[in-house]
């Protein structure tokens, strides 16, 4: 049995085990686990085929990254309903830091200037920016409602609208950064992250895997910070009205 077939069979085996346990313990998760496993298998097969195509025709890597960005923008935009033109603002917040950092990493030679390096690097950074954008946006929109009294009090005391919003903005970005900072702090102690594991399994030396993981993690911190701040800035620009006023919000929780 080839290694690839063995991997698929092992994955299927563990899915069957999880479904069996769910049925046995009457958790009501059997169907959900089965559907999730089928979806994962199908999606990865499609993505694998697409990436194989991209590797054969590198120019397609731009289209592939564009689709990832569009999907991320739609996903994050859907999570920050209430913000005017949410999808566009989310897309901008994700695209600028993720693409900028990918370009920088390729330019300085941290990764080869190839589709094989560029697409996964862009993918992981887009994923991080998506998470930070969503978390910042959700937290900020909730804060603008929950802390509306404080914000109004600051305006009444003579603060500019931007200054009145700043405490809520700072808290939102800080909260959104907690997961990636924790991940960076605990790497190698609590978890072995995906890039490291993937490289080791792929035959890379531990030193090479560690260096790659390190650059990915540290880049992620910067990208997520930039994405969160960018979304916060775009949100403030959308909400601040002439006369140091703040537009009322209607958000879905």
């Amino acid at each position: 049995m080839s290694s690839m077939v063995a991997k698929v069979v092992a994955g299927a085996g563990f899915t069957v085990l999880a479904v069996f346990l769910s049925l046995r313990l009457r958790l009501g998760l059997a169907r959900e686990i089965g559907v999730a496993a089928l979806r994962a298998g199908t999606q990865l097969a499609v993505v694998g085929a697409l990436i194989a195509l991209v590797f054969s025709y590198p120019v397609l890597s731009f289209a592939f990254v564009a689709v990832m960005l569009a999907t991320a923008g739609v996903t994050a935009g859907g999570r920050v309903k209430g913000l005017p033109r949410a999808r566009l603002r989310a897309l901008i917040s994700i695209a600028i830091p993720a693409l900028g950092a990918t370009g920088a990493l390729l330019l300085v030679g941290a990764f080869d200037f190839t589709a094989r390096s560029g697409v996964p690097t862009a993918g992981i950074l887009i994923g991080g920016a998506l998470a930070a954008t969503t978390l910042t946006g959700r937290r900020l929109l909730e804060a603008l409602v929950d802390e509306a009294g404080e914000i109004e009090a600051r305006l009444c005391l003579g603060d500019a609208a931007r200054a009145a919003l700043q405490p809520s903005v700072r808290k939102s970005v800080t909260t959104a950064l907690i997961p990636v900072i924790d991940q960076t702090r605990s790497v190698g102690l609590v978890t072995l992250p995906g890039t490291f594991v993937g490289l080791i399994l792929g035959g890379a030396s531990p030193a090479e895997a560690a260096a790659t993981q390190l650059v990915v993690l540290l880049t992620l911190v910067a990208v997520e910070l930039a994405a969160g701040m960018l979304l916060a800035e775009l949100t403030m620009r959308a909400l601040i009205l002439p006369g140091e006023r703040i537009a009322p919000l209607q958000i879905e929780r």
Binding site: E147, G149, E150, E152, A153, R154, L155, C156, L157, G158, D159, A160, P167, G243, E244, R245
Partner: peptide, 21 residues
């Protein structure tokens, strides 16, 4: 008027005033 100046000249206290931290 600059809105910030106006709000210092005319103080407003809301029905349930929020306290700052």
């Amino acid at each position: 008027f600059d809105a910030r100046v106006l709000r210092r000249r005319v103080g407003f206290v809301a029905q349930t005033p929020a306290m700052l931290p």
